[in-house]
Amino acid sequence: MYYEVYVDILFLENLWMDAELLVLTAKLFRKPLHAGRILAAAIAGSLGACLLTIGSEWISRAGCFLGSLFLAVLMTAIAFGREKHFRLTVAGLYLECFLMGGFLRYADQFYRLNGMVFLMAGSVAGVVLSGLETLILEKKKEEQRVCRTVLVCGSCQLELEGLLDTGNGLTDPVSRSPVSLVDRAYMELLLKGDRTERIPRMIPYQTISQKGILTAYRIDIMKIRNLSETVEIQKPWIAVMPQSAGRYPLILHRDLLSS
């Protein structure tokens, strides 16, 4: 039994797919894109894939696996250099390749993929993977902004999940101190556990859709902890949210953490 291999078509198909996989990997790990290095890495990967395909009759499955792994390492080194997290980037490229291959094998059950149809199916798979990566990156970015926060007011101590909001630039008009926002129910708990009378301050605010006056109090301590650091703030200003809290009962000011 034998089959014909058109090396030129095989090379072009692999060139396109390798370039697509490298761009997806760069997006996933937020690496800079250099067109020349991506093209060089894709050419190297495509040539290697052609050699593996031509020699598959004499190479064992283990040999093909090791060969594909070597190509992933080579392509990563050419495209991104031997920098920090190199092994993780190789694993990411290999995973992208695995997912892309699974998508194409599934599609091949319904329609024979070759030539332009193969490239179109690969492009669709790339768009799908890119969309999944966007969801993953957005989720990761939000997790980095979520902080376990302890609020201390007199004898009352609350631990809440706060969101470091890059859009919250609210400040006290007198002291210019940053002001965070807390759900009304939690503010009532804080004040209820405080034996001293705290004088509220009226702070004007304005958003795209509304404006008004917020009631703010200066509590004793705020301890903020996220993935990279822990910060303790003395006498911070906390204002009552203008409406009920959504997912996060505490919205932190954007300048409270160095990051």
Results as ranks from 00 to 15, higher is better:
58 W>A: 10
67 G>K: 06
217 Y>G: 07
87 R>D: 13
226 N>K: 03
113 L>H: 02
91 A>W: 14
68 S>H: 05
251 I>F: 01
258 S>D: 14
170 L>I: 04
76 T>H: 02
162 G>H: 00
180 S>F: 14
39 L>Q: 10
154 G>M: 14
189 L>G: 12
8 D>N: 02
95 L>V: 07
57 E>C: 02
126 G>I: 01
144 Q>I: 01
44 A>F: 03
84 K>G: 09
122 G>C: 04
76 T>W: 02
96 E>A: 12
214 L>C: 14
81 G>A: 07
135 L>H: 09
193 G>T: 03
89 T>A: 09
159 E>M: 12
208 I>T: 11
12 L>Y: 05
14 N>V: 00
209 S>N: 15
22 L>T: 02
69 L>H: 08
24 L>N: 09
173 P>I: 01
69 L>E: 04
255 D>K: 11
204 P>T: 08
38 I>Y: 11
146 V>C: 11
54 I>G: 03
70 F>Y: 02
160 L>Y: 04
72 A>I: 06
15 L>H: 05
205 Y>L: 08
34 H>Q: 07
188 E>P: 15
30 R>E: 11
54 I>D: 02
234 Q>L: 12
28 L>Q: 06
77 A>I: 02
196 T>M: 12
162 G>A: 04
80 F>S: 08
197 E>N: 06
64 C>Q: 15
107 A>W: 00
149 T>F: 02
194 D>P: 00
231 V>W: 01
33 L>N: 05
209 S>Q: 13
142 E>Q: 11
186 Y>T: 05
196 T>H: 12
252 L>S: 06
134 T>A: 12
214 L>K: 09
1 M>W: 12
38 I>M: 07
175 S>R: 09
252 L>K: 11
125 A>E: 00
213 I>M: 10
100 M>Y: 03
234 Q>M: 08
84 K>V: 15
9 I>C: 01
24 L>Q: 08
89 T>C: 08
145 R>G: 03
251 I>V: 15
70 F>G: 14
202 M>T: 11
240 V>Q: 13
47 L>C: 13
187 M>V: 08
181 L>A: 12
158 L>T: 06
153 C>D: 05
109 Q>E: 09
217 Y>W: 03
243 Q>V: 14
129 L>C: 04
142 E>T: 03
232 E>F: 07
255 D>R: 12
115 G>W: 02
208 I>D: 04
232 E>G: 00
28 L>N: 04
206 Q>C: 15
82 R>G: 13
